[in-house]
Each structure stands twice: as structure tokens, then as C-alpha cells.
Computed example of a mutant assay.
Amino acid sequence: MWREDVLDLKLTKFFEISARALLSLLITAILTAILAGIVWTFYDIRLVFSPDSHGAFRTILVDVLTVLAIVEILRTALAYFSEGRVKVTYIIDTVLVTVLTEVMAFWYREMSWEKVAMVIALVLSLAAVRIIAVRFSPRSRREEL
């Protein structure tokens, strides 16, 4: 019995150390992606001086919103790194930013009303889940006690 407890403790410690090492690599990759996204956005500013400035603004807008989505992913990874768990609200925020990026892109192309309705339903569903997750989070439960 004692040997099994020691073995479980060692395996748990190994898992935690391995997860932190891999997460550190992931955070480094995310930071590199954010830096590349910022550089790419600044590079795309040159498109503003082209004849199709409307397309240039669309490209820059999508670039900026994509970087913001990656920042939300970084926020999720950092929360896991510091708290040892992933917050549902961070994941929902990431999906909301990504979906809203697509909504912004809808402004620049023709979309059927069915697709627009599906996106609106998705955004409203995510907003409702976000509100429920904040309202019934474990942290708020502890504060009520």
C-alpha cells in the first residue's frame, strides 16, 4: 500500500513537471505567433496606399483580430500555468473573439441570411454560456460561503 502511494506521488510529480515544461514551450510558441502577427499587421499597412484601400482595411482588421484571438489563447495557457486548470471563461472569450473576427469579415462579402443567423445564434449562445460560467464559477461559490 505504501509503495503504491509513493509511486502515485512520483507519477503525479512527473506529470506536473512534464506538463509545465511542455506548456512553457507552448507559451513560447504563442508569444512568437503574436510577434509574427504584429509584424505581419504592420507589413500589411502598406496596402492602405494601394488602389483597393477597402480591401486593405479588411486585411488589417482581420490581422488585428487574429492577433487578439491568439492573445486570448495565451491568456488561457497562462491561467493553466498559474492555477493548474483552464478557465471556461477564457476559452469562451477566445472563441468569441475568433467568431467576431469572422463576423467582421462578413461585412466585406455576401453571406446568405441562414449563415448570418447561425453566427448570431452562436454568438448569443456563447454569451449566455459566458454569463452562466461567471455566475456559477467555483470562485464565486467560495466567496458566497
Rank of each mutant, 00 (worst) to 15 (best):
Y90E: 06
M111S: 09
A105N: 15
Y90H: 14
I91S: 01
Y108V: 08
V103T: 13
V86R: 02
L78Y: 05
V95C: 05
A105L: 11
T101V: 11
E102A: 14
M111Q: 07
V95E: 03
I91Q: 03
R109C: 05
W107K: 15
V97I: 10
T98E: 11
L100H: 10
D93G: 01
V86C: 02
W113C: 00
Y80K: 06
T101P: 10
D93C: 00
A79N: 13
T76P: 04
T89Y: 06
F106C: 14
R109K: 12
A77K: 00
W107G: 15
W107I: 15
V103Y: 12
T76H: 03
Y108F: 15
T101Q: 12
D93M: 00
K87R: 09
Y90F: 10
V95D: 03
V95W: 07
D93I: 00
L96W: 02
D93P: 01
V99R: 05
T101C: 13
R85H: 12
L78T: 03
A79L: 12
V97W: 04
T98L: 10
T76E: 02
R109A: 11
V86I: 09
L78R: 02
L78A: 06
F106H: 15
V97Y: 05
D93L: 00
V97H: 00
V86F: 04
T94E: 01
S82N: 13
V103Q: 13
I91C: 05
V86Q: 01
G84F: 07
A79H: 14
T101W: 08
W113Q: 02
L100F: 12
T94D: 00
F81W: 12
E83Y: 09
E83W: 07
G84H: 07
R85A: 10
Y90W: 07
T101M: 14
G84R: 09
R85G: 07
S82F: 14
T94H: 02
M111P: 01
S82W: 10
L100A: 13
S112L: 08
Y80P: 02
G84V: 08
F106D: 14
V95I: 13
E110D: 14
M104T: 14
V88A: 07
T98F: 09
Y108K: 12
W107V: 15
I91T: 04
F81T: 04
L78G: 06
E83H: 11
L100E: 11
K87M: 10
V88Q: 09
V103S: 13
M111H: 07
T98H: 06
L100V: 09
S82V: 11
Y90M: 07
R85I: 09
V95Q: 07
T94C: 04
T76N: 04
S82H: 13
V86Y: 03
I92K: 03
A105D: 14
